[in-house]
Design a protein around this nucleic acid. Structure first.
Length: 223
DNA sequence: GCGACAG
DNA sequence: ATCTTGTCGC
């Protein structure tokens, strides 16, 4: 199995392929959410990819996959834990999206290579990361209004790695950063648009829902 | 040595 | 991630 050191070297090599400029359709049609559920009483995980119509939020395609975890949870090496099951689900997906929203960080990572970056490079699809808690970067307090942002800055306080974004007034912000083929500003703009009603983008909420459902079904039927 | 640490 | 309903506070 992959050692921790080999995983870090892999990140540093793949990072060179990252594109942090907008290289996605200007007229987005399909936007996908990915999420992974964990079973509390076993080492099963369920990956889900939900492809939504960017404008109506209607689910246009769905794919899930259940398997055993193959890598421990190590902050900074998160993608090695969740990517395998997501790649298996991707193989089953009939409709490929213009952009993927990941539950976790992209550029806002100690080596600037979070799950969103890794998935974007491997699939060669535009991706962005939307995390619920901070992993890397410093930021100042932000206003309470929906749409308020604060830049997420690397330790030197010069390099911006993402934005802290308040998607709902008075509710904890989310952490947005580019994965691949997208800019910080565009990623932030899209997350705000996708989180019109709740704290998290609709893509993430749908993927979470179907992933949970897939886990329950798998445990009930075996397979 | 101490604190931080996506899901 | 998961444990989890009512309850505290604005």
């Amino acid at each position: 199995m992959l050692t921790e050191q080999a995983a870090i070297e892999l990140q540093e090599n793949l990072r060179e392929q990252l594109i942090l400029r907008d290289q996605l359709p200007t007229d987005l049609q399909l936007i996908a959410g990915v999420d992974v559920e964990y079973d509390k009483e076993s080492d099963l995980i369920a990956g889900a990819i939900a492809v939504l119509d960017f404008h109506t939020l209607e689910v246009k395609a769905l794919a899930t996959h259940v398997m055993h975890v193959t890598f421990p949870y190590i902050p900074g090496l998160f993608s090695f834990r969740e990517m395998p099951v997501l790649l298996e689900a991707w193989k089953k997906l009939a409709l490929h999206p213009d952009l993927i929203v990941c539950d976790g960080h992209g550029l806002a990572h100690p080596r600037r290579f979070g799950l969103a970056c890794h998935l974007g490079i491997v699939l060669d699809i535009p991706t962005l990361g939307c995390g619920k808690t901070r992993l890397f970067g410093d930021y100042e307090p932000l206003a309470e209004a929906r749409g308020s942002i604060a830049p997420l800055l690397a330790e030197d306080n010069k390099e911006q790695v993402g934005n802290v974004l308040r998607t709902q007034a008075g509710i904890n912000p989310v952490f947005v950063s580019p994965g691949h083929k997208i800019s910080i500003d565009t990623a932030t703009e899209i997350v705000l648009k996708m989180a019109a009603e709740y704290r998290l983008p609709e893509t993430t909420r749908k993927a979470d829902h179907y992933g949970r459902e897939a886990m329950i079904a798998y445990k009930a039927n075996g397979q």
